[in-house]
């Protein structure tokens, strides 16, 4: 298993957000995570990425348990094993599209065929541009490219289509799933869209801190 989440709990003050959540993800598998606003989808995603601590439970990525790792080790784990995509793209504004695409891969010492990657993402004409010169859909393509370029074992996508129109959202979703499949990566994607969620290999619905 690429990802194993066991009995994870998370509270914000007296409010319990996640109450013993467990899941597993195999390589090449695409899982959609749905739920109402405030149900804890993004919190779970952030905890899996090692961005946010959990109150109880265990998360293992590629055989490494997160709770045993220090901050810097979590960062290294993230850099080498996880690709993250945010709703607001969160590209690095000072770098060009080409530099953004290759950034994480080069951090891990991996080489990237930028031209091939850009071609697969439809970004060939935009490689020299800066993120602010692109449309929302194009920016999200760059974010996907950055996430998959490093050949991560796990891709975490937090509502990647939330800021896009339906047609663009569909295209981006398909691109993400295809890219994950091509790289053999496990994909956990948070979405509000039941339509898109139904196109994943598996669907998990979070409610009152549990999967239903």
């Amino acid at each position: 298993m690429v990802l194993t989440v066991t009995s994870v709990e998370k509270r914000f003050g007296k409010v319990s957000i996640l109450n013993g959540v467990s899941l597993t993800l195999a390589a090449g598998e695409a899982v959609a995570l749905t739920g109402e606003s405030g149900s804890g989808k993004s919190t779970l995603l952030h905890m899996i990425a090692g961005l946010e601590p959990m109150d109880a439970g265990e998360i293992t990525i590629n055989g490494k348990a997160l709770e045993n790792l220090r901050d810097a080790e979590r960062a290294t784990l993230r850099r080498e094993n996880i690709g993250i995509i945010f709703q607001q793209f969160n590209l690095i504004p000072s770098l060009t599209v080409a530099q953004n695409l290759s950034f994480q891969a080069r951090l891990t010492g991996r080489s990237v065929d930028i031209d091939a990657l850009a071609s697969s993402l439809g970004l060939t004409e935009h490689l020299a541009k800066y993120p602010e010169q692109l449309s929302g859909g194009q920016q999200q393509r760059v974010a996907i490219g950055r996430a998959v370029a490093a050949s991560p074992k796990l891709i975490l996508a937090d509502e990647p289509t939330g800021n896009l129109d339906e047609a663009t959202g569909d295209a981006v979703f398909d691109l993400l799933v295809t890219a994950a499949h091509d790289k053999g990566a496990a994909l956990l994607i948070v979405t509000h869209s039941n339509r898109l969620a139904s196109r994943a290999d598996r669907r998990l619905h979070l409610r009152h801190g549990h999967f239903q």
Binding site: D71, A75, R79, N90, P93, R146
Partner: peptide
Amino acid sequence: LPQLAPVWAIGLPRQT
């Protein structure tokens, strides 16, 4: 913060 947070999320420790 908005400029640094993505770099941190990608995998650069806060200390670095």
